[in-house]
Amino acid sequence: MLARLGAISLSLSMILLLSMNYGSFALVGFLSATGLIALVVLHPWTARLTDRHGQGKVTAAAAGIAALSYAAFLACAHWKAPAWTLFPAYALAMGSSPNVSGMVRRRWAHLHDGSTRRAANAVEQVADELCFLSGPILATILVTSVFPEAGVLASGVLLVTGMLLFAGQRRTEPPADPAAGRRESSPLRRPSVWAVLMPYALVGILFGALDVTTVKHTTSMDSRSAAGVLLSMIALGSAISGLAFGKVRPRSEPRVPFIVSVAALAVLTCVPLAAARLLPDSLPAIGAAMFAVGIGTAPVIILGTSIVQACVPEARLNEALVWPSSAITGGNATGNALTGWIVDHAGDSSGYWVPVVVGPAALLAAYAGLALHRRTDDDCVAAEDVGV
């Protein structure tokens, strides 16, 4: 939980810090995109190392790199170094931290199967959302009430501490398999994985747009400190829906429920735009809209994770579980960069149009992935065997 909380609080801490020290949301958007692209590139490579050498060894080594990169970024931001110096420091800070959430899910897959595994996925989704709930609030309080660099500093301390504690948990660690890369093909060669990746990338754009637009909108209302609370409403809604969804066993295999869940999320992501247009000065209205988006989030993530776990051999599961996360992250990077430019040039709440446009595209991608997956059933175990 500590490592996840640190990683989740970094993005908003960076947005708030640089908007105060540099005053450019375009810079914030492109820097965020650079860091997230570094994460997308480095996380799968780290996951392959984890499959081959074990979670403990790789995580401990990554903790040292993360500590140094956080320190470099803080130094550049504090002394207002030239903007270009921020990019390599932040990219390394983002890319050096492994996907702890995916590694925990890998441990659950190693220890359990059947309905227990699906319940474990729901529990992990709730744990993620609790971090998403508290992370923005923590970041906002530290940056606005302590000092601008406090959010990034706390993020780094939490991340490195959590990584080291996780690396020490050897009892539940799945065994390393040095030959995994040679014996099993890449997860990206499985159509079932692509059936999840395509809609996940577009869902990431939705959330990247919501992050930047909400910070910009609250800043224009002279309520910058409310941004973290408003964004945390997404996590609160997702945590509640995750708890409820984890208790329900679907009657059909997961592909159709997955596309239905993406359709529901696409509809709900129109609510923030409606709230900003109808009640532009109402923070409670924006918060309620974010909560509505969160309600639609957990089913998409839980079902997508279940599909991947069902369709990829255990020896490559660390890497396989990184790719959906990387798809969301890559989409988030695109959403950050695109929306940062939009709100700087077209108005404070204009970024809320991005989810309205991208939502239907996510639904089309989910449907296309469903058709692709349906033609290649042979790479998955039966749905009832994995409890999805």
Rank of each mutant, 00 (worst) to 15 (best):
R4N: 10
G6H: 12
G6F: 07
S13P: 09
L18Q: 11
G23S: 08
F25Y: 11
S32N: 06
V40T: 03
L42P: 01
P44S: 02
T46C: 03
D51H: 11
H53N: 14
T59R: 11
A63I: 11
G64H: 06
A75I: 15
W79I: 15
K80T: 15
P82G: 12
A83I: 06
W84C: 06
F87C: 14
L92Q: 04
G95H: 11
S96F: 02
R107I: 15
W108G: 12
A109S: 10
H112W: 15
D113G: 11
R117L: 15
A120F: 13
N121A: 04
V123E: 01
A127I: 13
L130W: 07
S134H: 02
G135V: 02
L138D: 02
T140Y: 02
V143Q: 01
T161C: 07
G162E: 07
M163Y: 00
R171E: 06
T172R: 15
P175R: 12
R182H: 15
R182M: 14
S186F: 10
P191N: 01
V196G: 04
L197A: 09
Y200A: 05
T213S: 05
H217D: 05
S220N: 13
A226N: 10
A226T: 12
G228R: 00
L231R: 13
S232G: 12
A244P: 15
G246Q: 06
P250K: 00
R251G: 07
R251E: 08
S252Y: 12
I259Q: 08
A274M: 11
D281V: 04
S282A: 12
L283G: 06
P284W: 09
G287V: 09
A288S: 13
A289H: 02
A289R: 00
V293T: 15
V300I: 05
I302K: 06
S306K: 04
S306F: 05
I307D: 01
C311I: 05
P313W: 06
I328L: 08
I328A: 01
A333C: 14
A337N: 05
A337V: 03
T339E: 00
G340W: 05
I342W: 12
V343W: 01
V343T: 10
Y352R: 05
P355W: 04
V356P: 05
V358H: 00
V358E: 01
A365W: 01
Y367N: 14
A368E: 14
L372T: 04
T376W: 13
D378R: 14
V381N: 08
